[in-house]
């Protein structure tokens, strides 16, 4: 577990270096082509870009240790504020896609294994194979075409872009609970959670906006969740097939237990162990896919922000965002590793 610390330091270094290697003049990218040299010198000094790289790195580490991710060169807003505004979009999308993948993928895999070689099995495995092969954005565009154009005017029509319809708003926790005088990190946290529309609307009972947010999230969720769904279904299937061939399952059957009990209580539990790892491993792919889904469905999340920051030479934002995403990823993998001990007693004893 301590091993993650050098990895995290390495991460910071890689992100810092890459952000600095990106070619282009940050001053003229932000202030425009006609900025004079005097203005640019001042600009460069203000952001410490005239210091040697090692010193810049040291300053950056010091900044990070105080929880300060810097101020965006382009938006002149703290990166933390940008994260509070934009990270929730990506998190909500990613988690909903993962939920969709697990809720559909696991039962599908179990069913396929239990009814091996049945039309359900063959059909779902063909769909799974095509699902993992289709780029996220192609599937997203296809879904938009079907649900926003072909089904327009029917009850099945779904909006092709954005998070909410125009005019619809999810009231923030601060507004609903009248916490206007809260400030500091707690206020940041409340703002952050409020931008997760679905949980916020659920907690505060804003049913109208909740429905609207869900309808907007449906297509991106399916587009992003299909690849992990296919992978999860395949792993679940092969895992249950393996377990069903083990001796203890035969023993359970020989004892005269009902088939339902054997499969659901005895076999499925053990079969789901490898599935947990796979679910955890999907997160990297989901975050990558979220970049594409955000572009396809016109959502302003992490992917869009990093991309805009790269085209705008906004080092501070590139650093801050890539770093936070990588940290989240490392952290989730750590949790997945730890969850083994919880799920598998054999690991715990070692």
């Amino acid at each position: 577990m301590l091993i993650t610390i050098p990895v995290l330091l390495g991460l910071i270094f890689v992100v810092f270096t890459l952000a600095r290697v990106i070619p282009g003049d940050p001053c003229r990218a932000v202030l425009g082509e006609r900025a004079t040299d005097a203005v640019c010198d001042d600009f460069i000094r203000r952001y410490g870009l005239d210091q040697p790289i090692p010193i810049q790195f040291g300053l950056y580490l010091g900044q990070l240790s105080r929880g300060d991710l810097g101020v965006s060169i382009k938006h002149s807003e703290p990166v933390t504020q940008l994260l509070i505004d934009r990270l929730p979009t990506t998190i909500e999308l990613t988690l909903m896609a993962l939920l969709f993948a697990v809720v559909v993928g696991v039962p599908l895999g179990l069913l396929s294994a239990y009814r091996r070689n049945s039309p359900i099995d063959v059909g779902s495995m063909i769909v799974a194979n095509i699902g993992v092969s289709m780029p996220v954005f192609v599937l997203g565009l296809l879904l938009q075409f079907v649900f926003a154009l072909l089904l327009k005017g029917t009850p099945f029509a779904l909006p092709p872009s954005g998070r909410l319809s125009s005019g619809v708003e999810v009231l923030s926790l601060v507004d609903v609970w009248h916490l206007e005088n809260v400030s500091g990190p707690l206020r940041g946290f409340l703002d952050f959670v409020s931008r997760l529309y679905i949980p916020t609307a659920l907690i505060t009972g804003q049913w109208g906006p909740l429905g609207d947010a869900l309808r907007h999230l449906l297509l991106p969720m399916v587009a992003l969740g299909t690849i992990p769904l296919a992978i999860i279904a395949r792993i679940t299937r092969s895992s249950l097939l393996e377990v069903l061939g083990l001796d203890y399952v035969r023993t359970a059957r020989a004892k005269g237990l009902r088939e339902r009990t054997v499969v659901l209580r005895h076999a499925t539990r053990n079969a789901l162990l490898p599935v947990v790892t796979i679910v955890g491993l999907q997160l990297g792919g989901l975050l990558s896919g979220a970049v594409l889904t955000e572009t396809t469905f016109n959502l302003t999340g992490v992917g869009r922000t990093v991309y805009e920051a790269i085209t705008g030479r906004d080092y501070v934002v590139i650093q801050g965002f890539t770093l936070i995403v990588a940290f989240i990823y490392v952290f989730v993998n750590l949790i997945v590793d730890l969850s083994y001990g919880f799920l598998d007693p054999r690991v715990r004893q070692r």
Binding site: L18, L287, V291, A326
Partner: peptide, 24 residues
Amino acid sequence: MRLMDIVLAFPSLLLAIVIVSALG
């Protein structure tokens, strides 16, 4: 292997985007 872990710690597409932008 820790170096490899660092590369693996990024969502691959995000890292690829940053690398292509950095190199041209």
